[in-house]
Design a protein around this nucleic acid. Structure first.
Length: 647
RNA sequence: GCCGGGUUAGCUCAGUGGUAGAGCAGCGGUUUUGUAAACCGUUGGUCGGGAGUUCAAAUCUCUCACCCGGCACCA
């Protein structure tokens, strides 16, 4: 017998080997009917699994949040059957559940197009309506390989070969169709329901390897209820309105054009925002003891050969020769570190000079693959809020911790509380001895653990010269973007001949920490725009207010208001056009102007302003002086607000 | 870079082999206006570039560029 504990605390015994379904039936026929899967000690399992040992048992209905991944996984199987029914000869590969749905990768000479979705969805509904039971079988390894090979499913054969010897080869059948799968599944295809939708097609490499076959991937999503699917689709629609590329145009911040793929044309308002951010970082890092420098845009390739960049990233750098008959090749800098090492090397450095903290708003160029470009988020020319800190090995943990704290405090000022930290250790392609990597990884890990922040391991994803911490922010449509980074480098200073004199008059190679906080100014601006949906807080808004007139009788007063605001350092413009106030309100609201200062005959007579704030209906009338003072107060950047309070 | 989908007026988009369209914007007028689109008139296009098929190409084919969605890449 096995003793099972139920969610209500009841404990009952059943014959060993009873299946979940047996037990559910004994409890009540209606439970057996409603339940789609079970959880044993919290782990999802098939209802048909025999229960061999004591533990906690729970029956899941399809409305249970934990059943969602089963609905999606089952939907992936139904999708695969539908596709193979419609296009025999298509090979199936893998079909996992992902964050907001599922996908299935197929191998077929003719890739799918969105026009195929209607037919596929129709076939899926048929399969679901047929409501065949999902049944699990365990096949002998060689038998399984033979069956799939005979069916022409060569990718499945490869998958079976990749399953460790001590694991079973599990097959799930739904009627005549079957698939290799680790499960679990619900008890029948009918449980998938009809709240599913195919979303998009995409190419994807087999096993994520760009040297292998290109598969055709179909993405879909599924929910327990139609209302949930509708809500999800609505949410995607809303997210699209926050897209920084769209808002960038609507707010007149920047544009891109063919002649400069991956490079930004900053318009006046966009460049104002850029400068506000640069100014903010400049204040924060000065307060943290950094000094700002500037290093050359073009440097001889020999420097990049010595640093190791040439060997690793040659195809991703812009090389240039001023004239065809010139023998020197210059490289447009893809990083600032070699330049900063030159500044460190210029003049003899003592251990007393450490930590030596150099910062630069360095504009770097990287020849990113064309398919990687994505608005401001992934560009070929961008500005790093970069810094390199030269220290002794013993100072690594303390300095890395200080960087970590500075970075997190900066994200807080922008309202990003939920930041993911990744620890990336040594990659396959790297420079330097393993013993050196051991030391740098250990020191960085010490700093990370001291910070007390949650983190995840990003195995093998470190830079070629050292391990790194990556700070990841999420955009409006759920995509993650790496922003800040702290990297420990025990390799490059030595390769470029940097040294300091220690207390015993010995030449010692310094350790270098690479640090970025926004990472890329461009990317950070993109994330900020999406995070706020264009409704930037006043201190960041490039245009803080528009003074709009109701009739031209108020023009003179409006000019006075504009001038008074400008004199106080507020960023305002006037709108004295011959248009109705409704028209002006609409236009400036669409352009996300935070404050609309409306003046008509009344305001001119009373020396007041009617202010309407973005996103709010209605307005309030304030005396001009009071209004300007309140806007000015609100526009103070968070770091300066703290400084003012401290002073 | 790879797979798929795109590129038509400043913007959003219609137009499947037979004379390039709409709305908004712009411009010219009228209107002097009270918190999310006043009214009338009107300009504007090598249909992304190049080549081909055809009596005839925005439309079919090839090619290049760029954009979008993924994949791969991301110092």
């Amino acid at each position: 017998m096995v003793a099972l504990t139920f969610p209500d605390g009841a404990r009952r015994e059943y014959p060993k080997g009873s299946t979940g379904l047996d037990i559910a039936k004994k409890i009540s026929p209606s439970l057996a009917k409603r339940t789609v899967a079970m959880a044993l000690d919290g782990v999802l399992a098939d209802l048909s699994d025999p229960i061999e040992r004591d533990g906690k048992i729970e029956f899941l209905t399809r409305e249970d949040p934990r059943a969602l991944e089963l609905i999606r996984h089952d939907a992936a199987h139904v999708l695969a059957e539908a596709v193979q029914t419609l296009w025999p000869g298509t090979q199936v590969t893998i079909g996992p559940v992902i964050e907001n749905g599922f996908y299935y990768d197929f191998f077929r000479n003719q890739p799918f197009t969105p026009e195929d979705f209607e037919a596929i969805e129709k076939k899926m509904r048929e399969i679901i309506a047929r409501d065949k039971a999902f049944t699990k079988e365990v096949w002998p390894r060689e038998e399984a390989k033979r069956v799939f090979r005979d069916k022409g499913e060569l990718f499945k054969v490869e998958l079976i070969d990749a399953i460790p010897e001590d694991q079973e080869i599990k097959i799930y059948k739904q009627g005549d169709w079957f698939d290799l799968c680790r499960g679990p599944h619900m008890n029948s295809t009918g449980k998938v329901g009809n709240a599913f939708k195919l979303m998009k097609v995409a190419g994807a490499y087999w096993r994520g390897d760009s040297n292998r076959e290109m598969l055709s991937r179909i993405y879909g999503t599924a929910f327990a209820k139609q209302e949930e699917l509708d809500a999800y689709l609505k949410q995607i629609e809303e997210a699209e309105k926050r897209d920084h590329r769209r808002l960038g145009r609507e707010m007149d911040l920047f544009h891109f054009q063919e002649e400069a793929p991956g490079s930004v044309f900053w318009h006046p308002k966009g460049w104002t925002l850029y400068q506000i951010l640069e100014g903010y970082i400049r204040r924060r890092q000065a307060a943290a003891g950094y000094v700002e420098v500037n290093s050359p845009q073009l440097m001889d390739s020999s420097l990049w050969v010595a640093s190791g960049h040439m060997a690793t990233f040659r195809d991703n750098m812009f090389l240039t020769q001023p004239r065809e008959d010139d023998e020197r090749t210059f490289i447009v800098k893809p990083m600032n570190c070699p330049g900063h090492i030159q500044i460190f090397k210029n003049g003899l450095k003592s251990y007393r000079d450490l930590p030596f903290k150099l910062a630069e708003f360095g504009k770097v160029h990287r020849f990113e693959p064309s398919g990687a470009l994505h608005g401001l988020m992934r560009v070929r020319a961008f500005t790093q809020d970069d810094a390199h800190v030269f220290i002794t090995e013993g100072q690594i943990a303390a300095e890395a911790l200080a960087m970590n704290n500075l970075i997190l405090s900066i994200y807080q000022d922008f309202g990003f509380a939920d930041v993911t930290i990744k620890f990336s250790d040594r990659p396959d392609k790297r420079i330097g001895e393993d013993a050196v990597w051991d030391r740098s990884e250990a020191a960085l890990m010490r700093a990370l653990k001291t910070s007390g922040r949650a983190w995840t391991l990003n195995k093998g994803e470190g830079a070629f010269y050292g391990p790194k911490l990556e700070y990841v922010l999420r955009d409006a449509i759920g995509r993650d973007w790496q922003c800040g980074t702290v990297q420990v480098d025990l390799n490059m200073p030595g390769r470029l001949g940097a040294f300091y004199i220690d207390e015993h008059s010995n030449k010692v190679t310094p350790v270098m920490l690479h640090r970025a906080m926004f990472g890329s100014l461009e990317r950070f601006i993109g994330i900020l725009i999406e995070h706020h949906g264009g409704h930037l807080p006043l201190w960041l808004s490039p245009l803080q207010g528009v003074v709009a007139t109701i009739t031209d009788d108020a023009d003179a007063y409006a000019r006075e208001v504009i001038d008074a605001a400008l004199q106080l350092g507020l960023r305002v413009e006037g709108d004295l056009r011959n248009e109705k106030i409704n028209y002006k309100v609409r236009e400036h609201s669409l352009a996300k102007v935070p404050a609309l200062l409306v003046v008509g005959r009344k305001e001119a007579a009373d020396r007041t302003v009617s202010i309407r704030r973005l996103g709010k209906d209605g307005q309030s009338v304030l005396a001009l002086d009071a209004l300007l003072r309140s806007l000015l107060e609100e526009a103070v950047p968070p770091d300066m607000r703290r400084m003012n309070q401290a002073a």
